[in-house]
Design a protein around this nucleic acid. Sequence first.
DNA 1: TGTATATATGAATTGTTGTTCATATATTTG
DNA 2: CAAATATATGAACAACAATTCATATATACA
Lengths: 100, 100
Amino acid sequence: MQNISLDTLFELSEFFKFFGDTTRIRVIHLLLSGEMSVSAIAEKLNLEQSVVSHQLRILRTANLVKPTRDGRKIYYSLDDEHIGEIFNTGLAHILHKKKG
Amino acid sequence: MQNISLDTLFELSEFFKFFGDTTRIRVIHLLLSGEMSVSAIAEKLNLEQSVVSHQLRILRTANLVKPTRDGRKIYYSLDDEHIGEIFNTGLAHILHKKKG
DNA sequence: TGTATATATGAATTGTTGTTCATATATTTG
DNA sequence: CAAATATATGAACAACAATTCATATATACA
């Protein structure tokens, strides 16, 4: 293994935290299929609008999603090439584990 | 994207949580080079023994690491083929981001 | 310009998680 | 078997994070 700075390891753990919440992982999963408005996300996931907005702000601040306004709706999409890769790597693990 | 059950998405977020803590990611990083005793981990990471033990228990319960006793020392090693893959995928993201 | 709709945000609350400290358990060795 | 060493664990505390609720901001449209 390479020599990785304490700072980088900290950032790495911070990065994984974004995937470590059910609400956010569900939002991420949804956006893997394409952009979606806040209200559509809330409806699809059966969550309050405020919950979705709060979590989207966290993801947006981290540049994991990006907003595009169209009228009064704001469409969010994934803004990072690596998100799908990370998601799928983790998913492969879960599914593999399920099989035993 | 596939249809992934709510349950699986929950497990996925729980799985990523293990990587979402500085202490744990540092332990994982260390163990990527091979097995190591609890005291050696604590010394190397400059952490209290108790802190390391507590976090190792979390990783052990999740079957991410496994212990092997040798005398009074207990050596921990990674017990999951996917850990390195996940770690490196995340790391690639961080390093890529650093470059801009 | 007033009303409705879409989203964001702040404050309070609640739940969760990590660390600390003290102590327990297990193993080796004198 | 007592003392020393290695690790584990429980309880208390502190820090943090997610949700809720109320409200603010922004846009569209009559």
